[in-house]
Each structure stands twice: as structure tokens, then as C-alpha cells.
Design a protein around this nucleic acid. Structure first.
Length: 585
RNA sequence: GCGCCCAUAGCUCAGCGGAUUAGAGCGUUGGCCUCCGAAGCCAAAGGUCGCAGGUUCGAAUCCUGCUGGGCGCGCCA
């Protein structure tokens, strides 16, 4: 249970009671009434701004609302202290037995601790992520978007959203034709032709050699000297399929899965581009026109051109955007319109796009498209992931496609493991650049958040193992621990740990609402820190150790706390797709 | 030139739909293992939250302008 929500509901109920009693005017909007943890824990466990927010609309002094509201809040028997502070905040401190109850709830919920139905009313959510072009293997940069999207999707599922994970395959356009030509060259090479240097404009990567050999197996020599018009399509399609196979293998390696792969070529073939543009046309949002050149940075070859434009400016974009090339084919933007139209028509109410930061310039126009096509009924949130800088002991790892010193996603995962990659990718906000240092992420110290959190989990597991070994008479089954007398846990550090565990349901909900999975990683680090603190207390004071030989009931209570902590760590890690470990070796 | 993102402790970063004395890690200094895993813990020092205005009883948080950095800017996806 999210206890903040409990208190918030209570505050609103009491406000209504005050309205009934005539203490405050009727008809006030409680939407801005909020509940927060005070910055300073001495101010209590929760704080509400109710009196501050309502003072204006009610035309009253904050304290004149706060004082009677506080009186009413005092009447609840789980609350120890209610204070009006400063200009009119109300601080509440819960009774000590409030926290053990939250811990028991956690144990009862088990792996579902913190799960909620927050998203049930929001409609189906589509998370589109990775969508790397099928022209080569994935590199480290792709890993961030992959992990972010996958973790965000899990987070939304955990909070009750109906989520589809989707990959948009850019298998139309010039880039895949280049892939086809590059593959044909490797095919001739595999047949024994001398191909010399790879011409500029084609993909030089060695990874296409396998594709060349595959083509030989499939087509033998039939396209060796044939004109491009004969082989481009079959060769290209084969190469795309091969590349997508590799990409899916790489994603699999990181535990990332997609439910749906949508093909750009398929959209075009099925006439969905025409259909989507017709819809826009019917709304009067497509016209023939000439764009002004960009001010200050006019391209050398600029010439005014009549083109087919979408009225993006009507929906907040800076300029209208072209949808058709001069040769009559669609721009990438046109197929993207079709793709988003398709998503809308499949019934999604929330669209989330995970893109690299270099696509930031497309955000506004896509928002415009989604607003136009859905009559502003569908929300689009585009999350931009900043670059990942690969480092080793503080030095940047040099990468160049040409020189072949190109670090693939597979290289990194094989070197440090999927759990490390996943966690580290989430230790920064998506819109902040991230340094990924091989040395640091494999280091076994506090500086490395993966190990810090895993270490806490391993220590929890270790205590539980020791308990089974050293106190065989003690029943530490989940059922028994649930019934432990947690009122024996009175030390401030024990309380702090309980409170942190109890904060999990709110933490997940907030992370989900903000579409920010990194918050889970920070919460995990916080929980781990509370646990390590408590652990060390036991080093200083024997009475604070988890296992107390002469006091089985106290031991049981402490083990229940340890179990709950392990539970919080493992549930949080699993939301991020990281496997909790019971031992570090 | 325009748009988007960013600017918080020496370094790397949380916090940012306002609210009571701004947080963490690293680094620095000093402590804690006969004892549940020291891969850890505790303490000290360190900040006019880029600058200047504005809204507000109250701004790191919202608005405007500026400075500095990243990304992008008509037929590349």
C-alpha cells in the first residue's frame, strides 16, 4: 500500500468534513492538495500543503484552515503527532506501530509488493524502443535505449498499465538499399570475385561477410553478374532478415524483448501511408507550398521548392514539414506519420517513443502528428536518451567504424554481464549523458552502484542462511516471519529501514508516472544504504545484531525485517530486469 | 539565426507540477573488524543551486532575458 495515498485520502475526507461543518467554504478544488515526506525527518513522516493551497481560494489565512484540519487528523489512532508548522503546513508523525504494519504488508505481498493498478484507467500503452536500423550490429549507444525502454515498460506493467513493447523496423528507404548493395559485394566476394576496397557509400563492416556466404548458399551463382534491378530486392531482404536476427539475438542477450515488430516497408505496402495522409488531408492539414530557408544557416544548394507539407505549425511545431520527396516517394516523416497513425488505430491511448538525443528535432512534429490524427485524444511522450561514453579507467575508449575499433553491444555485455549493463544504464536520468567505465562498473566497491545494491541483497541472504544454520530451533519460514513481533524493533536505524521499505509503493508509482525508471535505481541504492548502516550497528553493539541467541522472538523480528529488505531489493531489481544475487563471488 | 535539452559541493550526479535548516557517491581529513560478509559503516570539512530580473507570504524548482555546453534545423533514416 502507498501510505502517502492513504493519508492524502484521509486529508481530503477531513477537508470535506470541514466543509460540511462550515469551517471552510464549499466548492473548493482539492486537486493541488498534496502529501510529501518533509525534507527534514524531524518534521515528521508526512507533510501536507492542504492549508497553504486552499487558503487563497477559500479567502482564509492558512493557519485558520490548518488548525482545525490538524485537530481532525489527530483523531486517527495511527497518528502520533500532528503539528501546524511554519505558515501553515501540517506535519504528521505516525505511531511506531504504523511501520511494522507496512513491513508485514510487504511480506504478505511478496513479489507483488508495490504492485498497483495505477495505470488501469489510462488505456493501453505502447512503448517503442531500440528501433535500430537493420544495417549492422548494435553498438553501446543502442544499449541505453534498449534498457531504458524495457525497464520503463516493466515499470508501467508493474503499476497496472497494459503495455506493448514495440520495435519499428526501418526496412525501407535508401539505407537498406545500401545494405543490399554492400551485401551483394560480399556475396561476390564469397563466390571468389576480387572485390578490392569497399567503395565509399557502402558499408565496409566485416559482419556482412557471413551475409555474403548465406547469399551464396541461397542463390548459388545466379545473381553474380546479374543487373542490380534483378538482385537488389532479394539480396536486400535477405540481408535485412539476417541483421534483424542478429539484433534480436543481442537484445535477447540483455534480456530485452519486444512484443511487436512493425515493418516500415510493410506500412508502405499496405497503403497505410496513403491512408494516414488522406486522413490528414481530410482534416485540411496537407497542402502544397514552399518553405522559407532556415535563417542564419542556409544550405549552399538551397532553392525554393514546391512540396507537399503537413501543417505542423497548427499543433505547436515551428515550421510545416514536408512529407514527399521530389521524386514522388515518401519522406521518412511520411512513413512515421503512417506508423503513429497505425499505433493510434490499434487502440493505444498513450504512446511512448524512446529515441536517441540526436532525434530531438523530430519531437515536436511527431507530437503535432499524434495530436492531429487522434484529435488530441492520444498522448505522446518522447524520451530522449543521451549519449553513452564508453570509458576504461577514466580514458575514453576510441571507436571508429572505419578502423574496425567499433565496440558492439555484444562486446560489452559479454565483458561485464547483462545485469551490470542494465543497472548502470539506469543510474542516470535518460536526458543526462552517461559515462560507462569498464573499470568502475566491474569494481567491487561502493562507487559501483550495482555491487553496492547486490552486496546488500547478498548480505540479507547471508543472514538468513546463518539463521538457519545457527538457530535451527527458530522457525524462519515466510509464514512465521509474517507473525513476528516487530514492535521489538525500536532502534532508529531499524525504524529508518522500515520506513524506507514502506516508501517503495510510492517510489514505483512516482517513477511510473514520470516515465523515469532511473528513480528505481536511486531508491534501491537508498534502501541498500539503510541496510548497510543497520548491519554495521550490529558490529558496534552486540545487542543490535540480527541473530540474538538467547532471544528467539527478537531474532525472528529482525529476520523479518531482513527478509523484507531483501524483498524490496529483489522486487526493485526485477522491475529493472536485474537478477538479484544471493552470494557475491 | 531558430528550436529542444542541460548548468546544483573540487569531481560525477540526485532533488525540479513551489513550501519548514538543499542531498548522495567519489576525493580530502579523522575514526570503526577477537564479533551476522570491512566488497561495509560512522564523523568532519566542502554549496550566494550559471547570471540578472519577475510571479509568490515563500523559488534549486514556475516565467522572462542573458551567459556557457550538447543535439538538431527542406527530399538521411
Amino acid at each position: 500500500m502507498n501510505y502517502f495515498r492513504l493519508i492524502l485520502d484521509r486529508v481530503k475526507t477531513e477537508l470535506m468534513a470541514l466543509q460540511t461543518a462550515g469551517t471552510i467554504p464549499a466548492g473548493l478544488d482539492f486537486a493541488n492538495v498534496g502529501i510529501d515526506p518533509p525534507k527534514d525527518p524531524r518534521h515528521g513522516d508526512v507533510s501536507t500543503n492542504a492549508a497553504m493551497v486552499l487558503a487563497g481560494p477559500a479567502k482564509m489565512k492558512p493557519r485558520d484552515i490548518a488548525v482545525p484540519l490538524a485537530e481532525r487528523l489527530k483523531a486517527h489512532d495511527d497518528t502520533e503527532l500532528v503539528e501546524v508548522a511554519g505558515p501553515g503546513f501540517i506535519n504528521l508523525r505516525m505511531k511506531p506501530d504504523f511501520w511494522p504494519k507496512r513491513v508485514v504488508e510487504a511480506m504478505e505481498a511478496g513479489a507483488d509488493f508495490g504492485r498497483s493498478d495505477l495505470g488501469r484507467a489510462k488505456g493501453r500503452v505502447n512503448v517503442e524502443f531500440v528501433s535500430a536500423n537493420p544495417t549492422g550490429p548494435m553498438h553501446v549507444g543502442h544499449a541505453r535505449g534498449a534498457v531504458f525502454g524495457d525497464a520503463l515498460a516493466s515499470l508501467l506493467e508493474f503499476t497496472g498499465h497494459d503495455v506493448t513493447r514495440e520495435y519499428y523496423v526501418n526496412d525501407a528507404g535508401a539505407q537498406v538499399d545500401v545494405l543490399g548493395r554492400s551485401a551483394h559485394l560480399r556475396y561476390r566476394e564469397a563466390l571468389g570475385d576480387a572485390i578490392g576496397e569497399i567503395p565509399t557509400g557502402l558499408y565496409p563492416g566485416e559482419y556482412l561477410k557471413d551475409v555474403g556466404e548465406g547469399l551464396v548458399e541461397l542463390f548459388k551463382g545466379q545473381y553474380r553478374n546479374a543487373p542490380e534491378s534483378a538482385w537488389l530486392e532479394p539480396v536486400r531482404d535477405f540481408a535485412i532478415a539476417e541483421m534483424m536476427g542478429e539484433i534480436r539475438d543481442d537484445l535477447d542477450l540483455m534480456g530485452v524483448r519486444h512484443d511487436v515488430f512493425t515493418s516500415e516497408r510493410g506500412l508502405v505496402k499496405e497503403g497505410k501511408v496513403d491512408a494516414a495522409l488522406k486522413r490528414l488531408r481530410d482534416k485540411g492539414l496537407i497542402y502544397e507550398g514552399v518553405l522559407e530557408p532556415p535563417k542564419g544557416k542556409e544550405p549552399d544548394d538551397w532553392e525554393p521548392r514546391q512540396q507537399t507539407l503537413f501543417k505542423a505549425t497548427e499543433f505547436g511545431d515551428d515550421i510545416d514539414r514536408p512529407v514527399q520527396k521530389s521524386d514522388g516517394s515518401w519522406t521518412y516523416f511520411a512513413t512515421d506519420i503512417a506508423y503513429h497513425d497505425d499505433k493510434i488505430r490499434r487502440g493505444f491511448k498513450v504512446l511512448i517513443n524512446v529515441w536517441g538525443a540526436d532525434h530531438g528535432g523530430y519531437v515536436k512534429r511527431m507530437e503535432a502528428v499524434v495530436a492531429a490524427l487522434s484529435d488530441r485524444q492520444v498522448a505522446l511522450d518522447t524520451k530522449l536518451c543521451q549519449l553513452v561514453k564508453l570509458m576504461d579507467r577514466g580514458q575514453p575508449v576510441k571507436m571508429s567504424k572505419r578502423a574496425g575499433t567499433f565496440v558492439t553491444l555484444r562486446d560489452v555485455v559479454e565483458r561485464v554481464g547483462k545485469d551490470v549493463v542494465r543497472f548502470i544504464m539506469l543510474t542516470r536520468r535518460n536526458d543526462a549523458p552517461l559515462d560507462f567505465d569498464y573499470a568502475v562498473v566491474t569494481e567491487e566497491s561502493r562507487e559501483n552502484p550495482v555491487f553496492y545494491v547486490q552486496y546488500a541483497h547478498a548480505r540479507c541472504s547471508s543472514v538468513l542462511r546463518n539463521a538457519a544454520r545457527d538457530l535451527p530451533a527458530l522457525d524462519i519460514s515466510p509464514l512465521s516471519l509474517r507473525k513476528a513481533d516487530l514492535s521489538r524493533l525500536t532502534h532508529s536505524d531499524e525504524l529508518a529501514l522500515m520506513k524506507c521499505i514502506a516508501s517503495w509503493p510510492r517510489a514505483v508509482e512516482q517513477a511510473a508516472e514520470a516515465h523515469e525508471p532511473h528513480r528505481i535505481a536511486f531508491w534501491l541504492r537508498d534502501l541498500a544504504s539503510h541496510f548497510h548502516t543497520l548491519w554495521s550497528r550490529g558490529k558496534e553493539e552486540e545487542g543490535l545484531r540480527f541473530l540474538i541467541e538467547g532471544d528467539p522472538e527478537l531474532s525472528r523480528a529482525r529476520l523479518a525485517l531482513v527478509r523484507s529488505c531483501a524483498l524490496g531489493l529483489s522486487v526493485g531489481l526485477r522491475v529493472l530486469g536485474v537478477t538479484p544475487v544471493e552470494e557475491l563471488r
